[in-house]
Amino acid sequence: MKLIVEVLALPHHEGLDLPSYVSAGAAGMDLRAAVPADAPLVLPPGGRALAPTGLKIAVPEGYEAQVRPRSGLALKHGITCLNSPGTVDSDYRGEVGVILANLGQESFVVHRGDRIAQLVVAAHGRVEWDVVEVHGATERGEGGFGSTGRG
């Protein structure tokens, strides 16, 4: 199923690729850093910063866009996204930003056009609460935090 999402590229996105899937089975599209070419973003160990993407998106109602870390950056450099996954709601019209954090031991430099996060667009439902006195029983019951086995 194809979903059409409007995208508005801001002036500081000029020359960068739009988010895209890198393989046929990919769920996420790579987001790129829209930092100035002459002023890369430097994340010291323990540091965090908001990286611009230069994009505004109009997510259709009933969907959200989730900003998620890239596994390669996390494993190789300790770079992750805070507030993960970050949610872009259907009524948000500002620039998509990525809150990057450096959990590694060395400074990490984000250059213009670097792939910094993934964007997954997913359907979601809306909840109406039904206040009850008792829940129906399940085999698991109230067991949590590792109660179903390993870990």
Rank of each mutant, 00 (worst) to 15 (best):
M1I: 13
L3R: 14
V5T: 00
V7A: 06
A9T: 13
G15T: 06
L16S: 12
D17L: 10
S20A: 15
S23K: 00
A24N: 08
G25T: 00
G28S: 15
R32S: 09
R32N: 04
A34L: 09
A37N: 06
A37H: 05
L43D: 07
G46D: 13
G46E: 01
G47R: 11
R48N: 15
T53H: 08
G54F: 10
L55H: 07
K56E: 12
K56P: 01
A58D: 13
P60E: 11
P60K: 15
P60I: 05
Y63W: 15
Y63V: 14
E64P: 06
A65Y: 02
V67G: 05
R68T: 11
R68P: 08
P69W: 06
G72T: 04
G72Y: 03
K76V: 05
C81Q: 05
C81E: 03
N83P: 00
S84L: 00
S84I: 01
T87K: 00
S90D: 02
D91P: 03
V98F: 11
V98E: 07
V98H: 01
L100N: 05
A101E: 09
A101Q: 07
N102V: 03
G104N: 09
V110G: 02
D114N: 09
I116L: 04
I116T: 07
V120E: 05
V121D: 04
R126K: 04
D130K: 02
V131P: 00
V132K: 06
E133V: 13
V134A: 09
A137W: 00
T138P: 01
G141F: 05
E142P: 01
G143N: 12
